[in-house]
Design a protein around this nucleic acid. Structure first.
Length: 476
RNA sequence: CGGGGAGUAGCGCAGCUUGGUAGCGCGCCUGCUUCGGGAGCAGGAGGUCGCAGGUUCGAAUCCUGUCUCUCCGACCA
């Protein structure tokens, strides 16, 4: 334990340092030699691939198709939607040279693709028969952020962005809500991160959106993280980009568009929600390795144990992602700590004692619980235990969030919780109250939850009658 | 972008005040002994001191610039 503490800063001591220690020690990322950029190493990229698969299956199932649009966007397109360009102008990187030639028009490295896709859609859509257009792209985007943090906010990041066009407002809103539901399914079901669904207040809305739907999660340090968003764009982009169709009634009409995105930030959430002082705790469904077999034995025993462990591995391959750690140069104790740091959900130990009794030892990463299992039962037991770990991690995260969610009547009450956690309170819907709250406490409106009723106690800032129930918190 | 802290071997650090032989722990390599919660001994490899200028006979050390990390703000997924 002493040595462990030297490697990973305890969560309670310094959460930020803990986070950096964990992602480095668990071999998830490395810093690139340019500010704000990171390398996703195989262990974290694999997690991203699982997330991609889970998302993509659901996108396809609801009729979406993947496509790919250009990395660079000409300036004249980027500036077409006024609010949009205002929202992003401060963080756009520009390409001004092509080889040795200065470009006639500079090109933006996409911070998001509404504009270039909007332009293309305007070329593609003529008739109501062309609708809806349901396209998603998996891509990288670039935003010149002031301060960065691996996964949570990097200059370049990976994401998916869906862009759809619909014939009616109702259909577009339904799409927006449906996609939020998909995000929730994946984030809660696969990542075991509980979220609160809501809409953003006007001040926090996506640049150019009519309504921004969001999922908000609470991290292990009591700070909030926006984990996925789905935007109803109304006809703002359709009007800016002339996305029009001739309707059945012979009238030329503007389409209704949506966009929705989720990013590699989800991996950051996964780490901050489940990790502990020993390192990561991976939910089994997205764990690159679900079961690590550690053979134990010395001298003459070693060969027999390793051979036996390999047989077990072969047998388990059909029920889980299993790896064997037969490195000769490390002791079992070292390996235990090593894989715990990487968050492998389940460890299977086999030694001479186990072999004699035809059993193995299973040790859960989430609870530390050890159980002896008959060899004949292992294949059947492991999937059940993995499922239980998945559920347990979600429950633990949910409990933590519930314990740190406080209904309040006025914002001064936040101080007793050190402004950490979620706060539910009424809001008068005046942005001035939101600004004042932010100024005084650094707390912002995370969302207006879809499922919440006014308490009737009045705005937590000004005391005037509440208009919306709001979820407050300090955000990443 | 403003304010702190920091860049010396893969990792963590000392050395810098007062310029003069590049050091420690871990890790790595080899050998032997070890193996149910971070093993031991012995031998060994590895560094243009973030980068670029300047001062000097001589710079890790002094000066200037610059890049990167980190923390706290403001901006954002």
């Amino acid at each position: 334990m002493e040595k462990l503490l030297k490697e990973i800063t305890p969560k309670s001591h310094d959460f930020s340092q803990w986070y950096v220690d964990v992602i480095k020690k668990a071999d998830m990322v490395d810093y690139a030699p340019m500010k704000g950029f990171m390398v996703m190493k195989p262990y974290s990229y694999k997690i991203w691939e699982f997330i991609q698969t889970a998302m993509d299956q659901r996108f396809q199932a609801t009729g979406h198709e993947n496509a790919y649009f250009p990395l660079l966007i000409p300036e004249n397109l980027l500036v077409k939607e006024a609010e949009h360009v205002e929202g992003f102008s401060a963080e756009v990187a520009w390409v001004t040279m092509g080889g040795n030639e200065v470009l006639a028009e500079r090109l933006a490295v996409r911070p998001t693709s509404e504009t270039i896709i909007g332009y293309m859609y305007s070329q593609w859509i003529q008739s109501y028969r062309d609708l809806p257009v349901l396209i998603n792209q998996w891509a990288n985007v670039l935003r010149w952020e002031k301060s960065t943090r691996p996964f949570l906010r990097t200059t370049e990041f990976l994401w998916q962005e869906g862009h759809t066009v619909h014939r009616t407002e109702e259909e577009a809103v339904a799409e927006t809500v449906q996609q939020l539901g998909t995000y929730r399914e994946v984030i809660e079901g696969e990542l075991a991160v509980p979220v609160i669904e809501g809409v953003k207040s006007a001040g926090e809305r996506f640049a150019g959106a009519v309504e921004t739907y969001t999922l908000e999660a609470l991290m292990g340090d009591g700070k909030a993280l926006q984990i996925a968003t789905s935007h109803f764009l109304g006809q703002n982009f359709a009007k800016a980009f002339e996305i029009r169709y001739l309707d059945e009634d012979g009238v030329l009409k503007y389409g209704w568009t949506t966009s929705w995105g989720s990013t590699t930030r989800m991996i950051g959430a996964l780490i901050m929600v489940h990790g502990d002082d020993k390192g990561l705790r991976m939910p089994p469904r997205v764990a690159p390795i679900q079961v690590i077999i550690v053979p134990i034995g010395r001298g003459a025993e070693r060969d027999a144990v390793v051979r036996h462990a390999k047989t077990l591995q072969a047998q388990l391959q059909s029920v889980c992602r299993v790896k064997i750690d037969d490195r000769d140069e490390y002791t079992p104790g070292y390996k235990f700590n090593d894989w715990e740091m990487r968050g492998v959900p389940l460890r299977l130990e086999v030694g001479p004692k186990d072999m004699a009794q035809q059993r193995v030892m299973l040790c859960r990463r989430d609870t530390g619980e050890k159980l002896a299992v008959e060899e004949s039962e292992v294949s059947a037991t492991i999937p059940k235990v993995l499922e239980d770990i998945q559920t347990t991690l979600f429950r633990q995260a949910q409990d933590y969030r519930n314990q740190h969610t406080h209904a309040i009547q006025n914002y001064q009450e936040m101080a007793q919780y050190d402004h950490r956690g979620f706060f539910l309170g009424d809001w008068c819907a005046d942005e001035q109250c939101a600004d004042r709250l932010k100024q005084e406490t650094a707390v912002t409106i995370r969302c207006l939850p879809l499922e919440a009723n006014l308490s009737g106690n009045g705005c937590i800032v000004c005391g005037r009658p509440g208009v919306r129930r709001a979820l407050f918190g300090r955000a990443y």
